Simulated assay, not measured.
Amino acid sequence: MKKVLVLFTALMVSLAVFTGCSSSGDGDKVYKIATDTTFAPFEFQDESGNYVGIDIDILAAIAEDQGFEYELNPLGFSAAVAALESNQADGVIAGMSITDERKLKYDFSEAYYDSGVVMAVSASNDEIKSYDDLNGKKVAVKVGTEGASFAESIAETYGFELVYFDESPFMYEDVVTGNSVACFEDYPVMGYGISKGNGLKIVTEMEKGSSYGFAVMKDKNTELLEMFNAGLENIIESGKYQEILDKYISVE
């Protein structure tokens, strides 16, 4: 009997480790929410090492409005999506573009931000001014982003080679050092990076991109998705949502 009890206990521990949501001390669900590590101004670390940003603040405001608890897991975009698919996370908020392809695997919230894509080059580069100037050259993109999708859609037309990165700072550095001549990035992310001295400049008009949404696996965690949508509507109506945007994106 003792052996059976030990095996049962071990099984329960394993389930607690490998399933998404856990429980707090009072028995309430604690949702595991995965996010990116460096996608400023949506998620990044401040000087104290705390994760902050538009996504982080929106999630916190919605959780407070709806009364649910969550554990934030900054993993990087690719790892965050992998965690969701392997049931290590209940949801992902990481500047994730809502696309038809992704809708086949995930259920998305209502859009919480409408983005767009721009091309940037080194601040000292006066030769690359348009897509036509990219022929035969290397262009950097971040895996899983709207910028990467857009660059892939025009790469053959303009004859450039793509170089992929998992983190935005590495992508920027590749352009600054001249290994790649340009990169494609979501406009608010690039604008924020330039304001913080990433060494780049925007040389194109913004291409319309997809909207960002909070994601869960298809047909799972519907209650979490419903709470996110309800909370989003409430913080928009209260003005909290705009307050968060104004905190990270300069209004001129």
Rank of each mutant, 00 (worst) to 15 (best):
M1N: 14
K2A: 14
L5M: 11
L5D: 08
V6K: 12
V6H: 10
F8L: 15
T9V: 14
T9D: 04
T9I: 13
L15I: 11
F18A: 06
F18V: 10
G20V: 00
G20L: 01
G25D: 06
D28Q: 01
K29N: 04
V30T: 02
V30R: 01
K32Y: 01
I33V: 08
I33E: 00
I33P: 00
T35H: 01
D36A: 13
D36C: 03
T37E: 05
F39L: 12
P41H: 10
F44V: 12
N50A: 14
V52A: 04
G53R: 10
G53Q: 09
D55V: 06
A63C: 04
Q66K: 15
L72T: 05
L72N: 02
L75S: 13
A80V: 06
A80E: 08
L84S: 13
D90V: 06
G91N: 04
I93D: 00
G95R: 03
S97G: 13
D100W: 01
L104T: 09
L104R: 07
K105S: 04
D114R: 10
G116H: 08
V118I: 15
M119H: 06
S124N: 13
S124I: 02
N125I: 14
N125P: 12
E127I: 14
K129H: 05
D133I: 09
K138C: 03
V139A: 03
A140N: 06
V143T: 11
V143P: 00
G147P: 01
S149Y: 07
F150K: 07
A151R: 08
E156S: 11
T157N: 10
T157W: 05
F160D: 01
E161H: 10
V163E: 12
Y164G: 00
F165Q: 02
D166S: 12
D166W: 02
E167R: 09
E167L: 13
P169F: 03
Y172V: 03
G178D: 05
N179E: 12
S180M: 04
G191F: 01
Y192E: 05
T204N: 08
E207N: 05
V216M: 02
M217S: 03
K218L: 06
D219R: 02
K220G: 00
E223V: 10
G231N: 15
I236Q: 15
S238Q: 14
S238K: 15
K240V: 15
K240W: 07
Y241C: 07
Y241N: 07
E243Q: 13
S250N: 11
S250P: 10
S250Q: 12
V251E: 08
